[in-house]
């Protein structure tokens, strides 16, 4: 068990170290002079020299790398090119908005996927199954860059039930459409996974035996659900990446502030420290959540820790 925990944790930390190094390499790979990209070609030599010094571009690559690591280690993540704020404080300002959006989307996804998936598995091949499968196929086919505008058109413009983007009078109501947009693809994937995993379990000999012994259907279903949970959870955690990258799109469409829009704005402004900081933070969140799910597995399922 301990060896398993240690292996998973070390591997995740190694991946994060790789992420940090890759991001550093990318930022240093910027072709041409970042100073020129920032100040334009007409900048005076004094301004350039000042900027070079400020960005520490005259240091050796090794020193720059260590400085980058230092910025990560002291928690500041470096300083934005655009303002004097640290990248960490910029992220801290908007992290709550993105967390709220991601949690709401997760809620949407699980609350739709579980009932639909269970119904589909329970009534396999019949009407509920066909409806759930059709919904899942549709949910997977519609990209969020199109679902967002569609929902705005329907619920914001035509029906006027929910606020339009940029209107933050009612924060909770304003969260509904973004959460639906972000959560739909995940809901579709989870519905399929739940249906598949549960259908497998419901066909297993132990379920047949339990039924034959006259166990109430609800208890049989509960037992099967517990055993079906693992594959569904894994896929759920892996899909979190899609959710994180979806926040960039959804926050842009709905004009919300957050990690995604901070990252995108920094990209357009050539604010490399902020781009690098956001990329490291987002990738690390993703790796850590997947590690957490892996570890949870080991704790819950004896087959994992002993196998």
């Amino acid at each position: 068990m301990l060896a398993y925990l240690a292996y998973r944790t070390l591997r995740a930390l190694g991946t994060i170290a790789g992420v940090v190094t890759l991001v550093f390499a990318l930022v240093r790979l910027v072709p041409g002079d970042p100073v020129e990209a920032l100040l334009g070609e007409q900048a005076s030599p004094e301004d350039r020299a000042l900027m070079r010094a400020r960005l520490h571009l005259d240091d050796s690559l090794a020193v720059q790398y260590l400085r980058f690591l230092g910025d990560l280690a002291d928690g500041s993540l470096g300083r934005s090119f655009r303002s004097d704020a640290t990248v960490a404080s910029q992220i801290g300002e908007v992290a709550g908005d993105t967390a709220a959006l991601a949690l709401a989307a997760l809620l949407v996804a699980w609350l739709t996927a579980l009932p639909l998936g269970i119904l589909a598995a329970r009534f396999r091949g019949r009407a509920p199954d066909r409806v759930a499968s059709a919904l899942a196929v549709a949910g997977l086919a519609i990209p969020n860059i199109w679902l967002g505008p569609l929902l705005i058109l329907l619920f914001g413009v035509r029906l006027r039930w929910l606020p339009l983007p940029g209107d933050d009078q009612a924060p909770l109501a304003a969260l509904v459409l973004p959460a639906l947009t972000l959560g739909t693809a995940l809901a579709a994937t989870l519905t399929r996974q739940t249906r598949g995993a549960l259908a497998d379990q419901l066909g297993a000999p132990y379920v047949v035996a339990a039924r034959a012994r006259g166990l109430p259907p609800a208890r049989v279903l509960r037992q099967a659900l517990r055993n079906a949970a693992f594959p569904v959870l894994t896929v759920g955690a892996a899909q979190l990446g899609a959710l994180l990258s979806g926040t960039v799109v959804v926050e842009t469409i709905f004009e919300r502030r957050g990690l995604g829009t901070l990252f995108l704005d920094a990209f357009f402004a050539r604010d490399y420290p902020t781009v690098a900081g956001c990329a490291v933070v987002i990738a690390s969140i993703y790796v850590l959540v997947n590690l957490l799910v892996d570890l949870l597995y080991g704790v819950i399922d004896p087959r994992v820790r002993l196998g």
């Binding site: 591997r11 190694g14 991946t15 994060i16 790789g18 992420v19 890759l22 991001v23 990318l26 790979l29 910027v30 072709p31 041409g32 990209a37 979190l240 990446g241 899609a242 959710l243 994180l244 990258s245 979806g246 960039v248 799109v249 990252f263 995108l264 990209f267 050539r270 490399y272 781009v275 690098a276 956001c278 990329a279 987002i282 990738a283 690390s284 993703y286 790796v287």
Partner: peptide
């Protein structure tokens, strides 16, 4: 598998944006 892990640690659009930030 190390390289694959590192590349996959960046969720989709995040990696593309980080890469496209390199070109003018």
């Amino acid at each position: 598998s190390v390289v694959a892990d590192v590349v996959q640690a960046f969720p989709g659009v995040i990696l593309y944006i980080a890469l496209l930030a390199l070109v003018d």
